[in-house]
Amino acid sequence: MRRPRVREKRPATFYLLASLMGLYLLFLYGPMIIIYILSFQGPDGGVTFPMVGFSTKWFLDILKPKQMADIPSSFSRSMLLSSLVCILTVVMSVAAGLGFRRRFPGAAVLFYLAIASLVMPSLLVGFGIGLGFQFLDLPQGLFTSALGAQLTWTLPFGLLTMFAVVARFNRSYEEAATDLGASPFQRLRWITLPILLPGIVGVAVGAFTLSYDEYARTTLVIGSKNTLPLEIYALISSDSTPELFAIGTVTTVVSFALILAMLALVLRLQRRRTQG
């Protein structure tokens, strides 16, 4: 006879910690929700409450190129750069993650190099790269110095994520494939990569969003044409209208859409796996 599972009574600490969690989430989302609301401020309203009417004026303002800032073109520049950073980070991190499964001479050096690149104060990375480009007389730009500066930020994150992904990977699948006569390439293409795919999607979205929001490493090496965060940065000191909040709302929507798409994709991959 099966005994019905008795639910253990919650201890008092549960309720204490649950309220802490609730307060933390309120703290996390409260201020952001306020700027989302304020971005719908009426045309005569200011940057604080009360709301003076309701309009989408500030969102339409974003589309108008101005002297101080050109949000639409910086947005497309950011998208382009982030896509490239994302692709490069995925390829290099997945390869390196697989490489790190074996012990090899130099593994510790490379690991500490990645950690150092991660903890290095961001502005200094840009400073160093900027100096290098100046000494070599190379032109700084979106797809040269800025791309490089962002990779020093996304690659360590990609590598650490891959460590976690690879640690959960059961190598007997690979051994079974080899025993059944798969070539190394077939094994990688049909066994290893499909199993690691949800983790790889995670690396891709992580790399994209980190690059899309990056400003501290990029600011000194961007050249003449800004990415979106740098354009926003420039706008903050000159502009004090709700347009800033509207920009914030739009970029947050972009980030959220991306994260939700990733979650949906990962869930689908997992469901297909459990069914198949």
């Binding site: 996390l28 969003t209 980190l210 929001d213 965060p229 940065y233 920009i247 914030g248 970029t251 959220f256």
Partner: peptide, 8 residues
């Protein structure tokens, strides 16, 4: 929120 803009 960590994946959204730090500036914002």
């Amino acid at each position: 929120p960590f994946w959204t803009s730090g500036i914002i």
